[in-house]
């Protein structure tokens, strides 16, 4: 057995990468409006067996040592965005529900309301103003879409996450895994299974918490 067996070793997002067909707009949005420094780029001739185009792979610093990266491929035709909905990577029929299309997005963290409102100010003064500002359960977020149609969220915590929320998250996910194979499962199945897990585990968790 390795001493690393039970260790959680990753340290964050090295980079998340997306294609762009609008490098000028992408740089304007992330570097010039949001102020994210360009920290790395690769200029590469296409190579390999599958007719790979020449490309630029470029990276923005999104804080915490994490990076947001784009690929710009020379000569690659952009998708037709005049019909349907979605972004330049994933297109959907016009009638695809917004909640589904928006479910894949990038959320960046800020430390305070002041910092959130500073990004709101920068975006509102740009060609990509904030589309929504929402207080969720325990976070507050602003949203816009970048020049590629990718939804970007900037969010702050309204309060620190409490230890019992970690327990609750684990009970939810264990319940979901338990019921997900049942045909026609609903949130009712989940809440019934989760109640069973609460009865099994919640009291014990409390004892563990008090022992610390």
């Amino acid at each position: 057995m390795s001493p690393l067996d039970d260790q959680h070793l990753v340290t964050g997002v090295d980079h998340a990468a997306f294609p762009t067909f609008d490098p000028a707009g992408t740089v304007a949005f992330y570097r010039d409006v949001l102020g994210f420094p360009v920290v790395h780029s690769i200029c590469a001739a296409g190579w390999g067996p599958d007719d790979h185009p020449d490309f630029i792979h470029f990276f923005f610093d999104i804080g915490g040592g994490d990076r947001l990266a784009f690929f710009y491929y020379f000569g690659l035709a952009a998708p037709d965005t005049s019909v349907g909905t979605g972004d330049v990577y994933a297109r959907f029929p016009q009638d695809a529900p917004d909640w589904f299309v928006r479910s894949r997005h990038l959320a960046l963290h800020v430390a305070s309301e002041e910092h959130l409102l500073e990004y709101r100010r920068r975006l509102d003064a740009s060609a990509w103003p904030v589309e929504m500002q929402i207080q969720h359960e325990t976070i507050e977020s602003i949203y816009t879409h970048d020049p590629n149609g990718y939804m970007v969220e900037i969010t702050r915590a309204l309060r620190p996450v409490t230890p019992q929320e970690d327990l609750d998250a684990n009970l939810t996910i264990d319940a979901l895994v338990d019921i997900a194979s049942r045909p026609g499962h609903t949130i009712d199945d989940l809440l019934v299974r989760k109640a069973e897990l609460i009865v099994e585990r919640a009291e014990k968790w409390s004892a563990v918490g008090e022992a610390r």
């Binding site: 929402i134 207080q135 969720h136 359960e137 609750d168 009970l171 939810t172 009712d188 809440l191 019934v192 989760k194 109640a195 069973e196 897990l197 609460i198 009865v199």
Partner: peptide, 18 residues
């Protein structure tokens, strides 16, 4: 409570249906 809190407040159901 605001909607986001309201619609996520239930953790479990024992004997009840919503």
């Amino acid at each position: 409570v605001r909607h986001a809190v309201w619609y996520s407040c239930v953790a479990g159901l024992d004997g009840w249906r919503i």
